[in-house]
Every structure is written in structure tokens, then in C-alpha cells.
Write a protein that binds this DNA or RNA. Structure first.
Length: 491
RNA sequence: GGCGCGUUCGUCUAGUUGGCCCAGGACACCGCCCUCUCAAGGCGGAGAUCGCGGGUUCGAAUCCCGCACGCGCUACCA
């Protein structure tokens, strides 16, 4: 298997790529990288009605954002171009024509209504849908008559009427289907476009795909593809049907499950590496304990025998934890660089642009307190605001009185005013001494100072925060707090 | 209805040749520690009769049979 691995990711451009799609792309890519093979992206746009403008770009952008590079496909080209099915129609039409000539496919003139009716009846009788119509057995005269009476026909593939079709799935083992229970499926639509079934078989053959790795929902159509490969005289690739990704209600992941598009995760400020690491764990594992892994380790160990059979539910909370892990692993400067665009997006306009050096000094303080870049603006707002707004009563700590709080703030202000340096070590030393002197517990004293300096009850460590804010800002805010409390009518 | 796949803590999973598994790790949850708050971190806890019922075996989550449930497919969609 080591030589000539060629796998593909073949999305249809019908909207924003979601986690399920991209997880499939990820597994294909990892498989290719593990085996030193090629990863190909192919656009399956054979359904003209469902095309969504911009969807191809959205797809490719998502892959690029995640750093999943493809060796052949749109934007990069390759020896088997074009990689867009709507530009390969002639291939499919030619193949369909040959199959008709060989008697392996036939033209079908049935209306959708008639088909639907027949299927309903068969189902009511408890049968499989099976072969739906009689067009397969038409005489030449009947065909001519039908041609005149209806519009352009579709081309159906005639499934064998006996025997079984068997696949050795690399993940699921042997699976087989009874041929006479299979329907004669359409390979060429009346608009001249192929269906997925024909196009996928043709392209996978001509692009020399070695393994078809796709979601489990495709397993039922595998016998069709196998029969097509056979009828066309093509050697079929190997198959591996990946477990699906489900929403919290255990049904196939879809828009109604909330955030499913990759772009949404990007906008929320998840790191691509964290998302990759999380997604790979949905259906694959390294061992019984390792979860946080560098990409190289994943590539080195990514084999199909470690892929799960059962579907997985997408757990947002665990993703957020993973995101936090990756944030804590990077350098403060990297964090700052990552936060920058989000701050410029989310901070009040008058506070933008932010000073990069200042941001660099803030980053280490919030590094272990942030999980998503989306929250960066809120958790750093008080660093940028001139004066955070807050209710003066929140200055008063549990067990303290307004007057005592005011006195404490004044003492702190005096201490701060006379501080020779404004680094956190000396600030802490002198403020602790002050607290001791006036008999206010550290919890109460620093709590009051925290509110005075940041307007918040939960922040990074107080003295580091003061150091980063700097003497001027801290003194101004302290003075303001004293004024506010004194004028608050609480005393 | 038919066909197919799946079934280990709430969730992601380990468990690949039956014994080291009366089932391990992680997220979430709870408690304690650390502590100026919030986090992060450390320690500990609760949580799975391995879907159910039969077998086989000295011994089964692991093998066999049956059943149940869930999901997927069942389009001139992919």
C-alpha cells in the first residue's frame, strides 16, 4: 500500500463546508501524508440546481485555513486536470454511451411521477424498491415511440439480476449486497450531466485513485460503484467508509445543529491546529491516553486500523478545552498576533488600532484565561479603555463598610503615589504592607483595588495587571474610584 | 417497508491473538490543595452490570447464535 497512494476529497459545492465534510478531507489528507501519497481535491458539481455561488472558494479557503494542502485540484492544477466535473462532461457522456451500446445501461423514459407511484406501490407491498421500470426490456419500436412522446431520456445502469456484490471495506470488513435488490440507478440525467455515481467512478479511475475514503452514508451506494467499475472494465480502488459525525441528537450533522460550518469556528477564534487535533480524535485515536498531538505525530501514526467504526458526536466543550490547550502552548507574542485581528474586529472602534507592544505585554496575563479569540476583546477591554465603568458599590468587599473601603483606597493611593518603581514585585510588597498596616485582609484590600483598577471582579493577578496598565492609568483610576465612592451617597 | 452499518462512563475513546479489565485515559461534573479574584495546575471523587438474552470456555467487553435499539441509504442530491 505504501506506493502510489492517491486519495481524494470530492465535495459538492452546495454551501459552506461543515465539520463532517472537512473531517473526511482531513482523514484523506492524513492518510496520503502517512503513506507518502497524493491528496487530490475534486469538485463534484454535477447537480446544477444545487450549485451555490462561492461555495468552491469557501471550501478551498477552509482547507487552506486549516493548512490541509492538496497536491492536485483547483488552484494548483495537476496532471489529471480539470478537477471540476462540470468540465469533464464529455468523459461521462462517452462512458454512458458505451455502456448503452454494451447493453449494460439503457435509456429510461419514465416520468418522475410514474416512478414515484411504482416505488410507493412496491414499498406498500413490502418489497425493496428494486428495479423500478420496464424500459430495460423495451423493443426498438417502443423506444422510438417513447422518444417521440417524452422529453430526453435518462440513462440507467442495469444492475445484475442475480448474485451478490461484495466489498472488502478497510474499516468495516466484508460487506455484501444482493444484486436483485438493487435499483437500476441513473447514470446520466436528462440534462446530459452525469449523476454522482457515474462521475465518481469515471474520475476515480482516470485520476488513478487508490483508495476511496468517504463517509459511511456512502456505503449503500458502493455496490453500484463496484458494478460500474466492473462494467467499464476498470479496476476498483480500495474502499474505506469513515464513521459519521453526528449532532447532539445523534442525527447526521446539519445546519440545524448550530455551528457546523468551518468558517464559524474560524470566526469564533478557534486555532486551526486545535480544530485539526480535535477533529482527528473524532474517529481515530493514537492510543489509550494521548490526545494532544503535534501534526507530525498524527501523520506518523495515522493508519486505518485505528479508525473507529461507530459514529461520533461533536462535543463543542471538548473542542474549547483543546483550543485552550493550544493557546497556552504558544508564545505570548504568537498569542498577541492571533488576538490582533479579533481585537480590531471586536473592540470599540475608538480603541482601534491597538498598540502592538502594549498588546504583547497584555498577552501573557490572559493566556491561561482565554479559550477563544472571540472573547479576547471582552477580556482585555479594561486594558484599553480610558476609564472602565462600574457600580461604585462593587468596590466594597464582603465584610467591609463604605467608609472603611474609602479609607483603604486612599491608603492604597498614597502607597501607589510614592512607589519608586511600578513593577509587580515591589507593588505587591508595598501594597501588602499597606494592607497589613490598616488591618484589611488581602482578600478585601486587593478585591477593592481590583475593582478600582479594572472595574471587574475577575481579572489576571492584580499586580501584574497594574504593572502592565502603568503608573499613570492606575493612579488615574484609583483617584476616580475614590471620587466615585465618596460621592456615591453610600457613606 | 426494504437494504446496510453501528452499539464500552453524559460525550470522545483505549481495549485488535479471550485471562494483567469486576474495564484505562480525556472533556464535562463534584470536592480538596494552591491563591488577591478568575483561570491554569496538582490531588481525589462520582460516573460503564462493556445494548439485551442465550451459548462456547476453567475464564468473554473480546468467540458463536438470537433479539432490541440507534443511525444511514432508499431522488434525473451528493
Amino acid at each position: 500500500m505504501a506506493e502510489n497512494v492517491r486519495v481524494r476529497y470530492a465535495p459538492s459545492p452546495t454551501g459552506e463546508p461543515h465539520i463532517g465534510n472537512v473531517r473526511t478531507a482531513l482523514f484523506n489528507w492524513l492518510f496520503a501524508r502517512h503513506h507518502g501519497g497524493k491528496f487530490i481535491v475534486r469538485v463534484e458539481d454535477t447537480d446544477q440546481e444545487r450549485l451555490v455561488p462561492g461555495a468552491v472558494d469557501a471550501m478551498l479557503d477552509s482547507l487552506e485555513w486549516l493548512n490541509i494542502q492538496w497536491d492536485e485540484g483547483p488552484r494548483v492544477g495537476g496532471p489529471y486536470a480539470p478537477y471540476v466535473q462540470s468540465e469533464r462532461l464529455i468523459i461521462y457522456q462517452d462512458l454512458a454511451g458505451k455502456l448503452v451500446l454494451q447493453g449494460r445501461a439503457y435509456r429510461c423514459y419514465c416520468s418522475r411521477e410514474k416512478l414515484e407511484q411504482m416505488r410507493r406501490e412496491r414499498r406498500e407491498q413490502g418489497f425493496a424498491t428494486g428495479h423500478a421500470c420496464q424500459c430495460r426490456e423495451m423493443t426498438e419500436q417502443q423506444r422510438v415511440d417513447a422518444e417521440a412522446a417524452t422529453g430526453p431520456p435518462v440513462v440507467r445502469f442495469g444492475m445484475p439480476t442475480e448474485g451478490v456484490t461484495r466489498v472488502h471495506d478497510l474499516i468495516r470488513g466484508d460487506v455484501e449486497w444482493q444484486n436483485d435488490l438493487q435499483e437500476d440507478f441513473i447514470i446520466l440525467k436528462s440534462d446530459g450531466f452525469p449523476t454522482y455515481h457515474l462521475a465518481v467512478v469515471a474520475d476515480d479511475h482516470f485520476m488513478e485513485i487508490s483508495h476511496i475514503m468517504r463517509a459511511e452514508e456512502w456505503l449503500p451506494s458502493t455496490p453500484r460503484h463496484l458494478q460500474l467499475f466492473d462494467a467499464l472494465g476498470f479496476e476498483p480502488p480500495q474502499f474505506a467508509h469513515l464513521p459519521m459525525i453526528l449532532g447532539p441528537d445523534r442525527s447526521k450533522l446539519s445546519k440545524r445543529h448550530g455551528a457546523t460550518a468551518v468558517s464559524e469556528y474560524r470566526n469564533k477564534g478557534f486555532l486551526p491546529d486545535a480544530l485539526i487535533n480535535f477533529m482527528v480524535l473524532l474517529g481515530w485515536s493514537l492510543d489509550d491516553k494521548t490526545e494532544v498531538m503535534a501534526l507530525d505525530m498524527i501523520k506518523d501514526n495515522f493508519t486505518l486500523d485505528r479508525v473507529t467504526k461507530s459514529a461520533a458526536i461533536f462535543d463543542q466543550e471538548k473542542l474549547e478545552w483543546m483550543s485552550g490547550v493550544y493557546i497556552r502552548e504558544m508564545s505570548p507574542k504568537e498569542l498577541a498576533g492571533n488576538m490582533l485581528p479579533f481585537l480590531e474586529r471586536d473592540l470599540p472602534k475608538e480603541l482601534v488600532p491597538v498598540d502592538r507592544d502594549y498588546l504583547d505585554s497584555i498577552a501573557p496575563l490572559i493566556q491561561e484565561r482565554i479559550k477563544l479569540m472571540e472573547t479576547a476583546a471582552d477580556s482585555t477591554l479594561y486594558f484599553f479603555e480610558e476609564q472602565p465603568e462600574y457600580d461604585p458599590s462593587t468596590l466594597i468587599q464582603k465584610g467591609m463598610e463604605p467608609q472603611g473601603t474609602l479609607d483603604a483606597l486612599k491608603s492604597a493611593l498614597a502607597s501607589l503615589n510614592s512607589a519608586p518603581t511600578f513593577d509587580h514585585e515591589s507593588l505587591e510588597a508595598s501594597l501588602r504592607a499597606t494592607g497589613l498596616e490598616i488591618g484589611v485582609s488581602p482578600r478585601q484590600f486587593f478585591g477593592a483595588l481590583r475593582t478600582a483598577v479594572t472595574g471587574r471582579t475577575a481579572t489576571p493577578p492584580l499586580f501584574e495587571t497594574m504593572e502592565v496598565l502603568g503608573r499613570e492609568r492606575v493612579l488615574r483610576r484609583m483617584e476616580w474610584a475614590v471620587e466615585r465612592l465618596a460621592g456615591a451617597n453610600l457613606i
